[in-house]
Design a protein around this nucleic acid. Structure first.
Length: 590
RNA sequence: GGGAUCGUAGCUCAGUUUGGUUAGAGCGCCGCCCUGUCAAGGCGGAGGUCGCGGGUUCGAGCCCCGUCGGUCCCGCCA
């Protein structure tokens, strides 16, 4: 029997519709069979409507749907009427459809897991049957938010006078930055395209072209190891403007984010956002993307530790390092086991150990309490600003490493204290600015760009490039939301000479720079305007907006942490003939 | 590249500490009963290469080695 097209969806009917005859199309969400009466809950993405088969009214209908089970696709034609027993839990709960006719559109095998919101099933199975996983309301809601964000983004940037321009997906491989995904060229054997890590150079070239205000919602690809918030392909809102400085980009971003939060969450954010320098962020929170929802700041006790009598501290100070502490307010009640977990956590971040003290009932105990005098312990407690009932954890050694260790501990302590549950529906946004322009790579034995090699140094620090490059700061800024790097950008170098100077600082010869980035250097000689921009991590924005900590909840068809797609099984081997066409020979794996 | 953790019925898990009869439970599934439920209920039933391979042993879900896969993290992610 041909299916009867729906006249309304499964989420719309209300008491005012009583008396109407309607047709619904949808999936069987539940079947409750009482023999004489059968309830079928019919579901589509809009909601669930209860349909009733009453054998006294329609004696032939029940046998015709005898085999119908969950997830079968059916159409139901019938009269809308008020329910005898309303269900206050669903929007359509006051009405039901008394079925006059039902047709089976398609049967369904028993699904490998139930289509319910609070699913306990492991992700392996969910990813294999991703199309079933995506039937679940909790996931569908995420994609509705994602869609809303697409619309707001296009609207906002259009209103601000931006032009969306598409940039190539088959691009030139560049050595700086992340590993590239490569695409072999058939016509030019032995040569490769790279999928873009971002459209960085293209958007700069568009500025040279005079596009002035460019934006694009665009896929980017980075062949690096994955995390809970990282997929090999991800989406950015890519933005670039000419004749602007950092303040213009920050102001634009704040207008955009305020609008998104207002329209998606009905939350009014206070602008302008707090700004924290990279150095302060590291010193206070031990992270360049601090979660400002969490309590507590790191304190520096290097000066007072020099004479503490505790060799771990004094040695650190003598070798030019620092001693830092984090006071976990009210956490003196932590068990030995919890402290061991913290120590283990510190070790994974490169700490050799984790000195700690407890200040409880006027007494000071801890890992090195017996190693030094009581008076010195008292002095330490005073220096870190601890109160009775607090746990104090320490890190001593190289500055950045010590900061990172305590930042990690701050976060771990918050987890152990259940603090994340308390801050679940709140938002803490800030800018992190004044990043170092360069950092020294021990692996490559040279300076590498911390952001990317096209980032302009702060004008005050240009002189440092020749004297002390490590101290030169970049005109770069990251938007941090709840501990996620939600956006990052910079003012770019628009002068050929400066760009050449940076390349040479990065250990690149003139020839090398020409080979790799000659097209950019050439473009900068044809009247490049001052320009800068920002790129938002679209997936991460959606994550924060829907309140998930897993990027796979906001990407329709994600990869696993090893980069596999469990549904279609890619990546897969390819036919020898395909390889032959490309002139590629695959090495036997060792 | 490294660390942690998980893999037992369609699903979620127990059983592994201390190797020993026929590997259990809940949900789901199948059958029957039932006219007001909404995760319906009652009765009955089927369903397992304990991820895979090898080893130790009289005997392995359990011990050992390897391997595959999931998750989280460090490194990495300009």
């Amino acid at each position: 029997m041909e299916f009867q097209k729906r006249t309304i969806t499964c989420g719309e009917l209300r008491p005012k519709d009583a008396g109407r005859t309607v047709i619904l199309n949808g999936w069987v969400n539940a079947r409750r069979d009482y023999g004489g009466v059968i309830f079928i809950d019919l579901r589509d993405r809009n909601g669930v409507t209860q349909c009733v088969v009453d054998s006294s009214a329609t004696p032939l209908l029940a046998p015709s749907i005898k085999d119908v089970r969950n997830e079968w696709v059916v159409w139901v034609k019938g009269l809308v009427r008020m329910r005898e027993n309303p269900n206050p839990n669903i929007p359509t709960g006051l009405i039901e459809i008394i079925a006059e006719d039902i047709g089976i559109i398609n049967s369904a095998d028993v699904t490998p897991f139930e289509i319910v919101d609070d699913l306990g099933t492991n992700e392996e199975l969910r990813l294999e049957y991703r199309y079933l996983d995506l039937r679940r309301r909790v996931l569908q809601k995420n994609f509705e938010v994602r869609n809303t964000l697409y619309q707001i983004t296009h609207q906002f940037f259009a209103e601000e006078g931006f032009t969306e321009v598409e940039t190539p997906v088959l691009t030139k491989s560049t050595p700086e930055g992340a590993r590239d995904y490569l695409v072999p060229s058939r016509v030019n054997k032995g040569r490769f395209y790279a999928l873009p890590q971002s459209p960085q150079l293209f958007k700069q070239l568009l500025m040279v072209s005079g596009f002035d205000k460019y934006m694009q919602i665009v896929k980017c690809f980075r062949d690096e190891d994955l995390r809970a918030d990282r997929q090999p392909e991800f989406t950015q809102i890519d933005v670039e403007m000419s004749f602007v400085d950092q303040e213009d980009i920050i102001a634009l971003t704040e207008r955009f984010i305020a609008r998104v939060w207002h329209e998606v969450l009905d939350v009014k954010l206070t602008m302008p956002l707090r700004r924290i320098s990279y150095e302060d962020a590291m010193n206070l929170y031990g992270s360049d993307k601090p979660d400002l929802r969490l309590s507590g700041e790191i304190v520096d006790v290097t000066a007072s530790s020099a004479t503490s009598g505790f060799s771990v501290f004094t040695n650190a100070v003598e070798s030019g390092g620092v001693v830092k502490a984090f006071v976990a307010s009210g956490s003196a009640s932590f068990s030995r086991k919890q402290i061991d977990e913290l120590t283990e956590h510190a070790r994974t971040y490169g700490a050799k150990g984790m000195p700690w003290l407890k200040y409880s009932n006027g007494e000071i105990t801890g890992s090195f309490a017996k190693a030094i005098d009581q008076s010195e312990l008292q002095a330490i407690i005073k220096n870190v600003g601890a109160a009775d009932g607090d746990l104090i954890v320490f890190a001593a050694g190289e500055w950045e490493r010590s900061c990172i260790v305590l930042g990690a501990l701050r976060q771990k302590i918050a987890i152990q204290n259940g603090e994340f549950e308390r801050v679940a529906d709140s938002y803490a946004l800030c800018w992190v600015t004044e990043f170092p322009l360069l950092e020294y790579s021990d692996e490559e034995k040279r300076w590498v760009a911390r952001h990317h090699p096209f980032t302009s140094p702060m004008s005050a620090d240009v002189a440092l490039l020749t004297t002390d490059p490590s101290r030169a700061r970049a005109m770069a800024y990251d938007l941090v939301i709840n501990g996620y790097e939600a956006a990052g950008g910079s003012i770019r170098i628009h002068k050929n000479e400066v760009q050449n100077e940076i390349f040479s600082l990065l250990g690149m010869s003139n020839d090398e720079a020409q080979t790799k980035f000659g097209f950019l250097l050439k473009a900068l000689r044809y009247g490049a305007p001052p320009h800068g921009g920002i790129a938002f991590g679209f997936d991460r924005l959606v994550m924060v907006l829907v309140g998930t900590d897993n990027i796979r909840d906001v990407v329709a068809f994600p990869k696993t942490t090893s980069g596999l797609s469990l549904m279609d099984g890619c990546p897969t081997p390819v036919a020898q003939s395909q390889l032959d066409q490309l002139g590629i020979q695959v090495k036997a794996s060792s």
